[in-house]
């Protein structure tokens, strides 16, 4: 498994006349980790939904390794190699933790046994193995966030879209997650695009940051460059967020 290159070109989307995303263009090179940041309502999750096929763009293109994702349903986008998490986690609450991940692993696994092996391996990687026979609905919020990541990973993605998986975690838990993603990226080469408000995580992970404001990309560069960008400072980071 290796990472895929994501290219977003001139993407636009309006809801009832309100431009949620306008002419957004950026790219995530294969095997890179890119952070997508911006204030609430900047259009970050909309961009994720456009990539993942939840909704169709008004204009613009999304390509994965040069293949267009236009017109694909979410399940087809997933099979094309894009795994995603939801900002508001969506565990299969009535099923065991393990079965949650087995279902995801079936995306690529040839049979149930293979899916189960893969699920256990991924649960182990995310530290959920001891809880694998519990109901997903019984997990704590940080655990649910990890389950969300485990499921997305189990689909065997070449591009991982992470939507605020650090929100609500304690600093030590954030560090654990950062470690997990670094390791995943290093060992499997998975490309990662993450939406994140926890700057500690963004700075630690991203080699590249895209800043969105009112649906427009206002900055795009290395973490150091972006955090010194005047527009970014003014519109988003302010003084407090760099902690």
């Amino acid at each position: 498994m290796s990472g895929a290159r994501l290219e977003v070109r001139d993407l636009s989307k309006s809801f009832r006349g309100l431009k949620a995303v306008r002419n957004a263009s950026f790219e995530v090179p294969a095997g890179e980790i890119v952070g997508l940041i911006g204030p609430n309502g900047a259009g970050k999750t909309t961009i994720f939904n456009l990539i993942a096929g939840v909704m169709a763009a008004d204009s613009g293109t999304v390509t994965l390794d040069g293949h267009s994702l236009a017109g694909l349903r979410p399940d087809q986008v997933c099979r094309a190699g894009v795994g995603r998490t939801f900002q508001i986690v969506k565990p299969f609450a009535g099923l065991s933790v393990q079965r949650n991940v087995v279902i995801a692993a079936l995306n690529l696994a040839p049979d149930i046994d293979a899916a189960e092996r893969r699920a256990v391996e991924i649960l182990d990687r995310l530290g959920l193995k001891p809880k694998r026979h519990q109901l997903a609905g019984a997990l704590t919020l940080p655990e649910r966030k990890r389950l969300e990541v485990a499921r997305a990973l189990a689909t065997g993605p070449r591009l991982l879209l992470l939507d605020e998986v650090m929100a609500g975690l304690r600093p030590t838990e954030v560090d654990v997650m950062v470690g997990v993603f670094k390791e995943l990226n290093a060992s499997l080469g998975i490309t990662i695009l993450l939406i994140e408000h926890v700057m500690r995580a963004v700075m630690a992970l991203s080699r590249h940051i895209v800043v969105l404001h009112h649906g427009e990309i206002i900055a795009d560069g290395t973490p150091e460059a972006v955090t010194r960008h005047p527009k970014v400072l003014e519109s988003y980071l302010g003084e407090e967020a760099l902690g």
């Binding site: 399940d75 997933c78 939801f86 969506k90 299969f92 279902i103 995801a104 997305a152």
Partner: peptide, 13 residues
Amino acid sequence: REDQEAAQALGID
């Protein structure tokens, strides 16, 4: 049954 949207995001038609 548990969550249709999540199911779809995991590659289920």
